[in-house]
Simulated scan of single mutants.
Amino acid sequence: MPAGFGVSTEKGNGLTGKARLTRPRRWVGQEWAEVRRSVRSALVEAGPERDTLVQSLKAAGAAIAAWAVSGWWFQAPMALLAPWTAIAMVGSTVYQSVRTGIQQFAIIALGTVWASAAMAFTRDQTMAAMLFTLPFMMLLGNYRRFGSQGIYGATTALFVITGGVSSTSTVGHRLLETLIGAVIGLLVNAFVLPPVHLRSVRDRLVRLARETADVLGAMAEGLREENGLEKWESWHHSAGGLTVSLQNVSEARRWAMEGSRWNPGGRLRRTGPKPPPFSEDMRWGRVCTRVLAITRTLEVINDDSELAPPSPDFFRLLSDVLGLASSICVVEAELLVGSGNEATQHEHRDAAVREAWSALSSLTDTFHRQEPWAAAVGGELLLEARQLLMELVPSA
């Protein structure tokens, strides 16, 4: 084993007590760091975290308003249904709120009517009414036309059955309370800071580029340290987080397409520039795949003592390549933001690209001088590093 790149021999159930405690502690630390970063981002800059904060507060406000109308003003007997419906109505887009409202009101109405009929048929026998109601409503809730709202049919039926009253007036009250919640939730979502997601695609792409830069930078720094490969688990966890961020980009893209439908926000709020082209999503998806592949290969080197790792010189040059790739990601994020001198940023990116290819050339020469038994993992790392640089350099 080359000096400076120690490999852990702890495997499977052979982990020491210290290692068993270290891994959960490390996971908790990583999760806590992500929570703090999200909170800080929501407070200091516009972006996905702030959008989530705004939508959460709107949902809470809609629920409070619905309760005030149904429970405090109308003194409705089942006022809970109004705020419950209002929360579900504050969706990611106005169109989604309308669609969700129609689906939800339909399934809740079915659940209310069916459960009330079951109570009347069984003469208010709770257990018998559940036997007649819940199996049917659970099956009906899986009907694709109800989308994710199908579960509300069964839960509404439970409210009706456990309420113990099946009169016509009570059924009418429940339907009215549901309608009140749906209307209030829709109005709040449409006219109180209506969600306009054109910016979200760009924001999430910028976040993805910066997170990719952080992962590559951490790997580059760690590979220069003694026993640096032992940090593979942290790198792999962070690289896996890039996949989640990529999914967020896809979700934001869908919101951007859907968000303009039936949305007064296009006139009430500033929408900002158009989102980057879809090809950027695809490119960064391939970049994330390459980064994750590199961390997996490092994991194999760390875990499999029978595989001979490349020399320290190889890892040093690989560190240089990954560090320069991180610099390219930083400049790409700045270009996506659109702030600063674009010509200067292009110059910085081109310079980093030239240096990265030069470092990769040196890495290739070092690989050719490796011992044959170290060629397997070294060749895989070299290939993935090369593919990473090819994906980072825009084709146009």
Score class of each variant (00 low, 15 high):
Ala128Glu: 05
Pro135Leu: 10
Ala157Trp: 00
Val113Gly: 04
Thr178Val: 14
Leu131Val: 14
Ala63Phe: 03
Ser169Phe: 12
Leu158Cys: 11
Tyr95Ala: 11
Gly153Arg: 03
Tyr152Ala: 07
Gly153Thr: 07
Val69Ser: 02
Gly111Met: 05
Trp72Met: 13
Ala154Pro: 00
Leu81Phe: 13
Phe121Lys: 13
Val171Pro: 00
Ser70Leu: 06
Ala117Ile: 13
Thr156Asn: 08
Asn142Val: 12
Val90Tyr: 00
Thr100Val: 13
Gly172Trp: 13
Met119Thr: 05
Gln75Gly: 10
Gly172Asn: 11
Val69Lys: 02
Thr85Gly: 03
Ala106Val: 15
Gln104Arg: 15
Leu57Lys: 07
Ala68Glu: 06
Gly185Ile: 04
Leu158Pro: 00
Trp84Asn: 01
Val188Leu: 03
Ala82Phe: 03
Gly71Trp: 06
Ala66Pro: 01
Ala182Pro: 01
Met89Asp: 01
Gly153Val: 06
Ile151Lys: 09
Asp51Glu: 14
Ala86Pro: 03
Gly61Phe: 00
Gln104Glu: 10
Ala62Asn: 03
Leu187Asp: 00
Ile151Ser: 11
Phe132Val: 12
Val188Met: 04
Ser166Phe: 06
Met137Tyr: 04
Phe132Arg: 01
Leu175Ile: 15
Gly181Ala: 05
Glu177Thr: 09
Gly181Thr: 03
Tyr152Cys: 05
Ser97Val: 03
Met138Lys: 08
Val94Gly: 02
Tyr143Gly: 10
His173Tyr: 14
Leu131Glu: 06
Leu176Gln: 09
Leu57Met: 14
Gly147Asp: 10
Leu175Ser: 05
Val183Ile: 14
Gly150Val: 07
Phe74Leu: 15
Gly91Cys: 12
Ala106Asn: 07
Met138Asn: 09
Gly153Ile: 04
Trp67Met: 09
Ala68Gln: 10
Ala76Lys: 09
Trp72Cys: 09
Pro77Tyr: 08
Thr93Arg: 06
Ile161Arg: 00
Met138Val: 15
Leu131Gly: 12
Gln55Leu: 13
Gln149His: 13
Val113Asp: 02
Ala86Arg: 02
Ser166Ala: 15
Leu140Arg: 05
Ala128Phe: 06
Val69Arg: 02
Leu110Tyr: 10
Ser56Asp: 08
Leu57Trp: 09
Thr168Phe: 14
Met130Glu: 12
Ala118Asn: 04
Ala118Cys: 14
Ile151Phe: 13
Gly172Gln: 14
Tyr143Cys: 10
Ile184Thr: 02
Ala63Leu: 05
Gly61Ala: 07
Gln125Val: 11
Met138Trp: 08
Trp84Gly: 02
Ala76Thr: 10
Met78Ser: 11
Trp114Gly: 01
Ala106Gly: 12
Gln104Gly: 10
Leu179Met: 13
Phe105Val: 15
Gln96Glu: 13
Gly163Asp: 05
Ser116Leu: 08
Ala157Val: 06
Ser148Trp: 11
Pro48Glu: 09
Phe132Gln: 02
Trp67Pro: 01
Met127Phe: 08
Leu179Ala: 14
Ile180Gly: 00
Pro135Met: 11
Phe136Leu: 15
Val183Met: 07
Phe132Lys: 03
Gly147Val: 13
Ala60His: 01
Thr52Gly: 12
Met137Asp: 01
Gly147Gln: 12
Thr126Gln: 08
Ala79Gly: 07
Ile161Tyr: 01
Ala109Glu: 07
Leu53Cys: 05
Leu53Trp: 05
Gln125Asn: 15
Val160Pro: 00
Gly172Thr: 13
